[in-house]
Amino acid sequence: MSLETQKPSQENPMSAEPVAETSRVSPFRRVLNAVGVQNSSLIIALVVLVLIIGSQNSNFFLTNNLLLIGSAVTIMGLLALVQTLVIILGALDISVGSMAGLASVASAMVFQATGGNAGIGMLAALGIGLVCGLVNGMIIIFGRVNPVVATLGTLAAYKGLAQLISNGKSQGYTGADDFFIFLAKGSIAGLPTLVWVFLIVAALLHFLLKYTDIGRNIYAIGGNDTAARLAGININRYIIGVYALVGVVAAIAGILITARTGSGQPVSGSEGLELQAVTGAALGGCMLKGGKGSIVGTVLAVFILGVLDNGMSLLGINPFWQNIARGVLLVVAVVLQQLRSGERRVGLPT
């Protein structure tokens, strides 16, 4: 009896300590924990960058310029979002830009062939994007090819196919179609339609990763594919599914290229999007080895890149420096990730 009466008295102080500690957590600390350290640093970097550029050129803060930044990052941002999923899975997709270019050509050519039916043109583009994504996934699974090598091959193949069916020229004219005009120049509640497309896709992918079993399984596969397989997760199905999703979103980006340019573009508008997408995802906190990353971080990184490009243009800096800046940012982001992970550096003693 004496032991039974003493046991609760020994446990109560222990159970009270965490409650006291929790109650002493400041509101600022709670917000920081909710946002995440990585995202907090991105927010700070974005604010500092905005203040620096704004102090050098007051036109930066004009409403039209801020909306222009949002519209300009949409296409690259969409590809960075799905690149985030692929990287978290522990893979990579180098062919996203080529898929966007192929979808752009398809949307315009089918639009023209059907007498100006925008809906059919867009469905054709989405279908081609889906097929391209499935092909990437199946090459990786059934061909047992490294994702980088597989998508590097399809990068060239999809780009060549877009040039072949278009004869290397822009195709169709969508500049007079109401829906394409709405996509390119319309607005909802003061925000450009392009920005709404980006935010909606980002919200859906954030929900998928954070609040569904599918998202948790994607993180599990990227973190430790062996453990995920032993836990009963069908890794092949997830790889094919994620790459198919990448193809669909790349097709959406291609449709937006068509809307913005008024015609299908086999290369122009999609060239170099692969590097930008990987840079956005890596800068947003994705570990290239997989298992870590977030949509919120990628969104912040995309706007950092957009502000940087816009600021360099406003300040009259040679546009060729933009590619240099993106390359440097990618290297810096990866280096910081490696230093945080504490992994052994290549070629150096531990």
Rank of each mutant, 00 (worst) to 15 (best):
N167Q: 15
L273I: 08
V148R: 00
A118D: 04
S170R: 11
Q83L: 07
G306R: 05
G143Y: 08
W196P: 08
N57D: 14
V195M: 08
V35R: 10
F61G: 09
L3A: 12
I221T: 02
Q10N: 10
I43N: 10
A100V: 04
A227K: 02
G269D: 05
N65H: 08
E274S: 12
A277I: 01
L164Q: 11
V242P: 03
I218R: 09
V249E: 05
F182W: 14
R340F: 11
I139W: 05
I235R: 06
S104L: 05
F28G: 09
T151R: 10
L314E: 05
Q112T: 15
A118E: 01
T114W: 08
L245Q: 02
Q322Y: 11
A202S: 14
S98M: 04
G342N: 12
R237G: 15
A203M: 13
F179V: 10
S23N: 12
L288H: 07
G153Y: 06
G186F: 11
Y173S: 15
M1T: 00
L155Y: 14
L89H: 02
C132Q: 07
F60T: 00
G311R: 09
V149L: 15
T151E: 01
G77L: 05
I87V: 14
L245M: 14
G101H: 02
T74N: 07
G119S: 12
S98C: 06
P8W: 12
R30F: 02
M76V: 05
L305E: 00
Q338I: 09
P349G: 12
Q276I: 05
S2V: 02
A176G: 15
V148S: 11
F28P: 01
S313C: 05
R229C: 00
L161C: 04
V346F: 15
S294G: 15
T114L: 08
G143F: 07
K159E: 13
K292E: 14
L329S: 08
C286Y: 01
Q112D: 14
D93T: 02
G133K: 11
A91R: 09
C286K: 00
G311S: 09
D93Y: 06
G280I: 07
S26I: 09
A118R: 04
L134Y: 04
L230M: 13
I257D: 05
G285T: 11
V149G: 08
L315W: 12
I257H: 07
R260N: 12
L126E: 03
D213N: 13
S95R: 04
A162P: 06
S9T: 11
T279L: 01
D225K: 13
S263K: 01
V31D: 06
I181G: 06
I94H: 00
P266S: 07
G262L: 07
A202H: 06
Q337P: 00
L155N: 10
L49K: 06
P147S: 10
V248D: 03
E17A: 14
I181V: 13
P8S: 13
L245S: 09
A106M: 15
L42R: 08
S187L: 03
V37L: 15
Y211N: 14
L199Y: 09
G36P: 06
A162E: 06
F180E: 07
M76G: 14
L315R: 13
F320T: 07
